[in-house]
Write a protein that binds this DNA or RNA. Structure first.
Lengths: 208, 208
DNA sequence: GTCTATAAATGGATAGAC
DNA sequence: GTCTATCCATTTATAGAC
């Protein structure tokens, strides 16, 4: 028994958007792909933007979960690795949003506001984590260094897949691990020598 | 006396692309803007991609110049600041390329190759500069840290304007200075204390 | 060199039958 | 819910007059 058509439209749209870029996928393409009529598609969604917004809502829910600091205790380097992995997996699954981020967010005020809000939450999370490491005494940086480093982490995470694609990387899945590595290296120089070595070890483990 | 029509088309295209994004500017828009006919535009250029390629060629020439290490002597922090400024100014003037980088480079193999080549040159340049600082004894990092930091610098520089736009910054011109600052902070933790303080001072000077 | 006119294709979206 | 048919707007691109 086939699922809800509405749901199949969302699923097919996500796959097509991710594969070719949202700009290069028309509502006709989506209907073709599902072997339904364009009219049917418009019965379930007001327009293309409606589809995008529904997908974005799912993305936002998942990203919010990934950004919520899970632990009561102070974070360890392994915690950070895990959280980065969750964030990157989410970005990967909704990579069409990131691929044409400026264009999409310039066309849709609502999405821009929500994405901006996600960035803000992510920034606060990163700052929180680094403060936690500082409290543990394994991280040495002043408030301004932490703030600016959080910003750099966001830029890397937000655009890593794009960078990877433009450089011509083919095994895009592997580039997630590289993305994690690049962020880890961003915070490494602030670590105490012991933990810096530990991180180098961790990094070697999952990079190839 | 008006310049060459061909030249005016390139100039108007660049301005429109930068303002609204290349995707949202048709050949008709360009012709309208110049108050010439679409037919006239197609007399001077084979198609829209032709216009984009001509603009990209100018961009590449200018970026190559900005990336060429100017000094015989070992680089200082001020040299780096100056070079970053040249690079960001170039990115700013051709920001339409960066705005829709993935889409443009996925549609045009030639541009993708050339952009990839620019990234490679930039990476080598950044590594060269950091090695120079290390030779001067004011920078302490191993080869792998330098390589990965160079990559992070490229990602920040490449996507800083996009990040700034999505965050909702309005004074986009000011964001160039912030972009320079973010890159500077990336290399700061590897500096000796004296130079780190000097950089903090430099940074304060041109950030507001 | 520049214009007018227009072809050809595509995309978003709707009306109305079933 | 789903389909067929169709409309309207836009875009790229060309032909041919001036």
């Amino acid at each position: 028994m086939a699922r809800d058509t509405r749901d199949r439209i969302l699923e097919a749209s996500l796959a097509l958007f991710n594969a070719r870029g949202e700009l290069n996928v028309s509502t006709n393409h989506i209907a073709d792909d599902l072997e339904i009529s364009p009219g049917n598609l418009y019965y379930h969604f007001r327009n293309k933007d409606d589809i995008i917004e529904q997908l974005f809502a799912r993305f936002e829910l998942r990203m919010d979960k990934a950004l919520t600091a899970p632990a009561e205790r102070l974070p360890t380097l392994e915690d950070i690795w895990l959280q980065l992995h969750l964030v990157y997996e989410c970005i990967w699954d909704y990579r069409f949003i990131y691929r044409d981020l400026v264009d999409i967010s310039s066309r849709n005020r609502k999405l821009r506001m929500h994405f901006s809000r996600i960035l803000k939450r992510a920034s606060e999370g990163a700052i929180e984590v680094m403060r936690g490491l500082a409290t543990s005494g394994i991280f040495r940086a002043n408030a301004e260094e932490i703030r600016a480093t959080a910003t750099n982490i966001l830029v890397i995470a937000t655009f890593w897949l794009n960078f990877s694609a433009v450089r011509g990387e083919h095994d895009e899945r592997e580039s997630i691990n590289q993305g994690i590595y690049q962020v880890m290296l961003l915070i490494a120089p602030f670590l105490r020598d012991t933990e810096r070595a530990q991180l180098t070890h961790l990094a070697a483990a999952y990079l190839r």
